[in-house]
Amino acid sequence: MSGHPAKPSPLNELCSALPSLPLRLREVGRFVAANDYDATTRSMRDLATVAGADPAAFTRLAKALGYSGWDELRSALTEARRPTEASPFSGRARGRRQGPNPEISLVSDKFEAEAAGLTRISPAAVAGAAKAVHAARRIWIAGFRSCRSVAELLNYQLRLFRPDAVQLVGGSGPEDLDLGAFRRGDAVVVIGFAPYSTASVVSARAAHHSGATLIAIADRVTAPMAEGAEHLLLFEAASSPGFFPSLTGAIAIAQSLAAATFTLGGPAAKRRLEETEARLAASSQYVAERD
């Protein structure tokens, strides 16, 4: 059998080398091994501050492992974190049953799976997250790629009665400009499913580090953008047939979250909703229905 042997994982290389490293490099190496995600997303200076080390120690560590410098080691760590599945969507289309009307069978199976998935969403978890949204000074909503539509839906519904408090991350420019605006007392809702977008994970990390309340709408407990979340709202994405994971549960959670937050707002939320409705009517935003 021919072929090249698989390249060792940079983390495995690091852990194997730890016993032979000088004490200070061993401490930096242990920090990188325990915080490999941060090592791929944060600057060397930031890492050094958190680790209580000299930034140059990260360069020395990389060279001790056989890399030209920290940038090369960081690139290797980033590459190692990439999903091994190169075709997360087309791969789902394999193995569908055949028959005279396979498309009808697919739609029927999909409806059945979507309905079953909705019954497994936790109402108590959504209600608990709604309390955090209601109490928040500002509400940030982060959804990227296919999850952008869910984020925009939640943003729209919340703005009907919290118009001054709700903002899409990246809605008015590059999302990284908003990450520095997260503050303690804010709520940050991050939406994602596998394969997870880098932007969603970075947004969740920024929310957690800022002290804001992180609310994750995700497909798995182990989702990287759910790490550190005070509220985790799970939906089923992969169980539904079809070439693309399902967003039905995420949409249901978003709408339920908005509805529960409105209920918690009481008369004040109702008054703001009525003011919004009056403004929309005055600007003729809807087509008038005729009898």
Rank of each mutant, 00 (worst) to 15 (best):
L106E: 06
M44R: 15
R60C: 03
G95M: 11
G228V: 04
Y67T: 04
Y37G: 02
A113F: 04
P88S: 10
A127F: 04
L18P: 06
A250H: 03
Q285S: 10
R92K: 11
P123C: 09
S246V: 07
G52H: 13
L14E: 01
A132Q: 08
A282L: 13
F262V: 09
P123V: 12
T263E: 13
A223H: 03
S122V: 00
A125C: 11
A53W: 03
R145W: 00
A194K: 08
T222H: 12
R184P: 05
K63W: 02
P100F: 11
A278T: 13
A39G: 09
P102A: 13
E103D: 15
V28C: 09
A226M: 06
R183P: 01
A260C: 15
V166H: 01
F31K: 02
P22R: 13
Q167V: 02
A218P: 05
S122R: 10
R74D: 07
D186Y: 02
A6F: 09
E103Q: 12
S283G: 04
A199F: 06
L168H: 10
F31C: 08
A125Q: 05
A252P: 07
F144P: 07
A207N: 02
A6H: 05
L234R: 05
L214Q: 05
A281T: 04
A142P: 00
P174I: 09
D176Y: 14
P55G: 08
P245K: 03
R74Y: 00
R60L: 03
S108K: 15
S146R: 09
A250T: 00
K110S: 06
G117K: 06
E230A: 10
K7I: 12
P55E: 12
I121N: 02
I253K: 07
E72Y: 04
S108W: 11
P163Q: 14
A130Y: 04
L233G: 00
S256I: 07
D291V: 12
A57C: 11
D38H: 15
V188C: 01
R94C: 04
S122A: 10
S256H: 02
V190C: 02
M44I: 14
K131R: 13
K110Q: 13
G117A: 08
L65N: 11
E85Y: 00
E275A: 11
D178G: 07
L118A: 14
P55M: 08
I251V: 15
E236P: 02
E289T: 08
